[in-house]
C-alpha cells in the first residue's frame, strides 16, 4: 500500500457539486423568503429566481444522472455495511478521544460507508421528493380542475417545505462534518483540486500509472 495523491473528483463532478451548492443555497434562501420566513428579496423577483434556479438544478441533475450511469461512478454510492459501524462509532465516540478516521479512501470507493449511504438517501429520496413536489406545485394550473385541488396544493406545498427543511438539515450536517477530520481545508480541497490522498495497492498504482497517468500527481 502506498499513499498517493489521486484525482478522484473529475472536472464534471466538481462542476456538478459546486453548481449544486450554489443553486441549493439560492433555492433555500429564496424559498424561505417565499414561504414568509424572511422578506429580504421582494416576492416577485424571488419567485423568478427560485423557479429559474430550480429548473437549472433539474437540468444539472439530468446531466449528473447521465454522467453517473455512463461512467459507472454510481458504484460509489452502493450501500455497504462493511466498516459502517466503525465510522458511526467514530463520529459518536472515538472522535472525542482524538482518534483518526477509521475509513481509508480507495480510488474506487471514495466515500466512507456512512457518507455513501447518506448521499444515496439524498439522491434517492430527498432530491426526487423536492423535485417532484416542486414540479407538481409549479404545474398547478394543469391539474387545478381536479376535485380537491385546493387541498392537494396545500399538501404538495407543505411536503415541498418539509423536504426543504430536511435538505437544509443535510447542508448543515454536511458542512459540519467537513471539520471532523484533519482540517476543514483538507476536506474541502479535494472537491476543488480533484486530488485526494488515497491508499493504492501496487496493482492499482501500476494500473493508474500505465492507463490513467493524469489521475496521479
Amino acid at each position: 500500500m502506498t499513499e498517493r495523491l489521486v484525482k478522484i473528483y473529475p472536472a464534471f463532478e466538481r462542476f456538478w457539486h459546486w453548481s449544486q451548492v450554489l443553486l441549493i443555497l439560492v433555492l433555500l434562501f429564496t424559498g424561505m423568503g417565499l414561504h414568509g420566513l424572511h422578506g429580504l428579496v421582494p416576492f416577485g423577483p424571488a419567485v423568478m429566481l427560485h423557479t429559474t434556479a430550480a429548473l437549472a438544478l433539474v437540468v444539472l441533475w439530468i446531466f449528473a444522472i447521465f454522467w453517473h450511469l455512463t461512467t459507472g461512478t454510481w458504484r460509489h454510492y452502493m450501500p455497504t455495511t462493511q466498516g459502517l459501524f466503525k465510522v458511526a462509532r467514530f463520529y459518536a465516540f472515538d472522535i472525542f478521544k482524538g482518534a483518526h478516521h477509521p475509513y481509508r479512501k480507495a480510488y474506487w470507493r471514495k466515500h466512507n460507508p456512512l457518507q455513501a449511504l447518506t448521499y444515496l438517501a439524498l439522491k434517492l429520496f430527498l432530491f426526487p421528493a423536492i423535485w417532484v413536489t416542486g414540479i407538481v406545485y409549479l404545474t398547478y394550473n394543469f391539474w387545478e380542475q381536479q376535485p380537491n385541488a385546493t387541498l392537494l396544493l396545500e399538501i404538495v406545498a407543505n411536503l415541498h417545505v418539509l423536504v426543504a427543511y430536511l435538505i437544509a438539515t443535510f447542508v448543515i450536517v454536511h458542512v459540519y462534518l467537513l471539520t471532523a477530520g484533519e482540517s476543514f481545508v483538507q476536506h474541502v480541497k479535494p472537491m476543488i483540486t480533484g486530488f485526494d490522498t488515497i491508499d493504492l495497492t501496487p496493482e492499482e498504482e501500476a494500473y493508474l500509472k500505465a492507463d490513467e497517468p493524469g489521475r496521479l500527481s
Partner: peptide, 20 residues
C-alpha cells in the same frame, strides 16, 4: 386555501424547524 408567503408557522414549519 394555501398561499405562499402568507401562512408560515404551520405544523409543517414546526416539524421542519424542530428537525433543523
Amino acid at each position: 386555501f394555501y398561499m405562499p408567503g402568507r401562512d408560515p408557522g404551520g405544523p409543517v414549519d414546526k416539524i421542519g424547524l424542530a428537525i433543523l
